[in-house]
Amino acid sequence: MKDQKIVLEEVFEKVENYTRTTFELHKLKFIGKSSSVVSILLLYVTLFIITLFFVSFINIALALLVGKWIGSYYLGFLIVSFFYLLIACLVYIFKDEISNKLQDTILLKILITPDEEEEK
């Protein structure tokens, strides 16, 4: 009877160790995924801000150039503004297709890590 009790205690101890180890493994995987998501988000936010500055300066230069050609700087800014209004209207018209494409791309980028790509 004592042998069965000792064996049972060993089994419970192994199950407890297994459970604790499995929990730690899942916790570490979650931390790894979270850090991956945060680093991707920070990268894209940084790239977005840099691109925003670049596009802003290019637009100012383009508006000044068009204004110089026309002879009136405010008309140059107005023409560039209407160009972006046209682009905004096109994006609004095709927003569902664009949204679906972006969601698919972002989800694939987040859910597939380099480790999983190597396993395939």
Rank of each mutant, 00 (worst) to 15 (best):
S35T: 11
K109Q: 05
K33R: 15
L42S: 13
K27W: 07
A61T: 09
F77Q: 01
I50P: 02
S36K: 07
P114S: 01
L102F: 13
P114H: 02
Y84K: 05
G71K: 04
S56Q: 05
E119T: 07
V80M: 04
L102T: 02
G71C: 02
T105M: 14
Q4E: 14
A88N: 12
K2D: 12
H26S: 09
D3Y: 08
F53Q: 05
K120N: 13
L47D: 03
F57G: 07
L43A: 13
V45D: 04
L111Q: 15
V66I: 15
Y73C: 00
I70E: 03
L78D: 02
Y18F: 12
I110W: 04
L78R: 01
V66Q: 02
T105W: 14
F82A: 06
A63V: 04
F57V: 05
L41V: 13
K2S: 08
D104C: 03
G76Q: 01
I6T: 10
E116S: 06
E24Y: 09
L90N: 07
V37G: 01
L42W: 10
K5F: 05
Y73L: 11
E16A: 12
K2P: 00
K109I: 09
Y74W: 15
W69A: 13
F94S: 07
L28P: 00
V45I: 15
S72A: 09
Y18P: 00
F53Y: 12
K101W: 12
L41C: 10
T21K: 14
L65F: 15
K109L: 11
E117H: 02
G71N: 05
Y73E: 08
K33P: 01
Q4H: 10
N17E: 07
F94R: 11
G32D: 10
L107S: 13
K27V: 04
G76P: 00
L90T: 05
K27M: 08
K29C: 02
I87M: 10
C89L: 15
S72I: 11
F23M: 10
I50C: 06
G71H: 05
Y84L: 09
D104H: 05
L107K: 14
G67A: 04
E97H: 09
F57K: 11
L42D: 05
L107F: 12
H26R: 09
G67H: 03
L111N: 15
K120I: 10
